[in-house]
Computed example of a mutant assay.
Amino acid sequence: MQQRSDTWVVIPAFNEAPVIGGVIAGVRALFPRVLVVDDASGDDTAALARRAGAYTAVHPLNLGQGAALQTGFDAALARGARYVVTFDADGQHDPADAAAMVDRARREDLAFVLGSRFLDGGGTQVGALKRALLHVGAMAAHARTGMALTDTHNGLRVIRADALAHVHLTQGRMAHASQIVSQLAGCGLPGAEHPVTISYTDYSRAKGQPLLNSVNIVVDLVLGER
């Protein structure tokens, strides 16, 4: 735990009261500093996050996941973070993957490590349509940025402070994923992908996230974020 005390885990959240406590408990077993950015939830997400031991910031208006991440980035950097982890609030990510990514960034002197469900070692089962759309997204990112990534829309990321200083999200909603890739590509610092597992739970499926995320990929490609 001590070796990751320079790391802040930023969790953007919107109406995640049923699961946020468990997600935070899992993350705090490996990371002492967790910040939940509540994007104007209509439930008890923020209160439950604080009860679980997380710091919280609360948007008075719903601004979208990208805006929530930027709030978290600014707060973490202001508090001296060396590394920032982005971590979804719905329980799809594995805290052990995040820890392995931070340890790899430190060991290999990487400015960013991006999670991929498609690299060897990842155990995620992805439907054919979603896989195809994600592949199109990766090809579009390669054409736009020169970064040969396999999974540009994975919410699990580790970004070192010097790279994060180059990230200024203006896409408040899901288009922020492509914007992060573009801005990291432009920072000129070394990075890598890392195999991770995404768990599509009954909870996340009930919220419709896999289909929604597929649609968001298409939207990203149309918008062509910078």
Results as ranks from 00 to 15, higher is better:
Ala52Cys: 14
Gln183Gly: 04
Ala99Gln: 13
Ala98Pro: 07
His142Ser: 09
Ser178Ala: 13
Leu169Glu: 00
Val36Ser: 03
Leu61Glu: 14
Asn216Thr: 12
Ala52Thr: 08
Ala206Gln: 13
Val136Lys: 06
Gly21Ala: 15
Val37Thr: 08
Ile198Arg: 07
Ser204Arg: 02
Leu77Met: 12
Ala141Asn: 05
Phe73Asp: 06
Val158Ala: 10
Thr56Met: 09
Ala99His: 01
Gln70Trp: 00
Val113Pro: 11
Gln3Met: 14
Met139Glu: 04
Ser178Lys: 10
Ala132Tyr: 06
Asp94Ala: 11
Leu129Gly: 14
Gln179Glu: 12
Gly21Gln: 12
Ala165Lys: 07
Asp74Asn: 15
Ala185Ser: 02
Thr56Ile: 11
His194Asp: 05
Phe14Asp: 05
Arg4Asp: 07
Asp43Val: 07
Val222Glu: 02
Arg82Ser: 10
Arg28Asp: 01
Asn15Ile: 07
Cys187Ala: 08
Val219Ala: 15
Gly91Val: 03
Phe14Val: 14
Asp151Val: 10
His168Ile: 09
Phe118Asp: 12
Ala75Arg: 13
Ala98Met: 02
Val181Phe: 00
Asn62Trp: 13
Ala47Asp: 12
Ala54Leu: 06
Leu189Asn: 05
Ala206His: 13
Met147Val: 04
Gly224Lys: 10
Ala78Met: 04
Met101Lys: 04
Gln3Thr: 14
Ala54Ser: 10
Gly146Gln: 05
His135Asn: 08
Phe118Cys: 12
Met139Thr: 09
Val218Lys: 09
Ile198Cys: 11
Ala40Tyr: 01
Val218Ala: 12
Arg173Tyr: 13
Ala76Glu: 11
Arg106Leu: 06
Val84Ile: 09
Val215Asp: 10
Thr45Tyr: 09
His59Lys: 13
Val222Asp: 03
Asp88Asn: 14
Arg205Cys: 05
His59Val: 08
Arg51Asp: 15
Gly91His: 00
Cys187Arg: 01
Phe87Asp: 04
Leu164Thr: 03
Val136Thr: 10
Gly22Phe: 10
Arg106Val: 09
Asp202Ser: 04
Ala132Asp: 12
Thr197Arg: 07
Ala89Ile: 08
Asp151Asn: 15
Asp6Pro: 01
Pro95Met: 05
Ser178Ile: 03
Val10Leu: 11
Ala98His: 00
Val9Asp: 02
Leu149Arg: 09
Gly188Asn: 04
Val37Pro: 01
Arg226Cys: 02
Ala192Pro: 03
Phe14Glu: 04
Arg51Thr: 13
Val158Ile: 12
Ala67Asp: 05
Ala111Thr: 07
Ile180Ser: 03
Ala175His: 06
Arg82Pro: 00
Ala49Met: 02
Asp6Ala: 11
Thr7Met: 05
Ser214Gly: 14
His135Gly: 12
Asp39Pro: 04
Ala81Tyr: 07
Leu30Cys: 02
Gln183Arg: 14
Arg50Tyr: 03
Leu119Asp: 09
Asp109Gln: 15
Arg50Ile: 04
Thr197Tyr: 11
Leu35Val: 00
Thr124Asn: 01
Asp109Ala: 15
Asp6His: 08
Glu193Val: 04
Arg131Glu: 08
Ala67Pro: 00
Ala99Ser: 12
